[in-house]
Amino acid sequence: MEKELVVPTMAECLAKGEVPEILFWVGCAGSFDDRAKIITKAIVRILTKAEVKFAVLGTEESCTGDPAKRAGNEFLFQMQAMTNIQLLNGYEVKKIVTGCPHCFNTLKNEYPELGGNFEVIHHTQLIQQLLDSGRIKVEGGNFSGKKITFHDPCYLGRGNDVYEAPRALLGKLDAALVEMKRSRANGLCCGAGGAQMFKEAEKDNKEVNIERTEEALELQPQVIATGCPFCMTMLRDGVKLKEQDQATEVLDVAELIAKAADL
């Protein structure tokens, strides 16, 4: 039986006079996409296990405006940003962890100019901190000896130079970490960024996610790990299309850690 998750909202905390350590920015995918919701819950379990005093915005959360900005709709982006900043500043939020590299990038880099100054980290960075400080412990048991490859999300890797945190987490799993030909700064996009997620691809001879999935599958990994709900969708679609979903799972790093820690 799954334990019921305790997920306090900022409004509840405020009513109780509590100040959470960190705001968990769930993101639209983490809130609404069925596959991404599982990742969200894994992150919550890790935060709970580590006794992190966190809260979410719940129904008050709204899109950061990332897809609007990448698509060129600066108006809509700034409307979203300023409304969100008002809300966050109202709650006197200081520190934010996001479940998505796009929210991470936008909150961290594009909100300060509009008056939103927060310390923003990606969930892989937070989990690494929790492991390093001993607030959670992981035994590699479940994944011991398994072949795992990590797909760098563009807005985590190239966009913000976070290459090590997710790999450090995978390193804790006692698994065989193998790199794709194109990894880290040279990593290949999954095809979803720049608002491509929400439109049909332009005329081409191949989808980007197929190109990337083929590269990952060449390694015959048991797990393709990533840290982005959109990469997750693209790679899962790719693996399914290649009929490899029995042999290869696509998992978020948070899910791997949660499973390894029996959460």
Partner: peptide, 22 residues
């Protein structure tokens, strides 16, 4: 997608009231 963000704060057509349903 723009319309969705404008109307319901997400790029998809989901109600903001359902944000915490997960």
């Amino acid at each position: 997608m723009f319309t969705n963000i404008e109307n319901n704060g997400a790029p998809w057509q989901f109600s903001p009231a359902d944000r915490l349903n997960w």
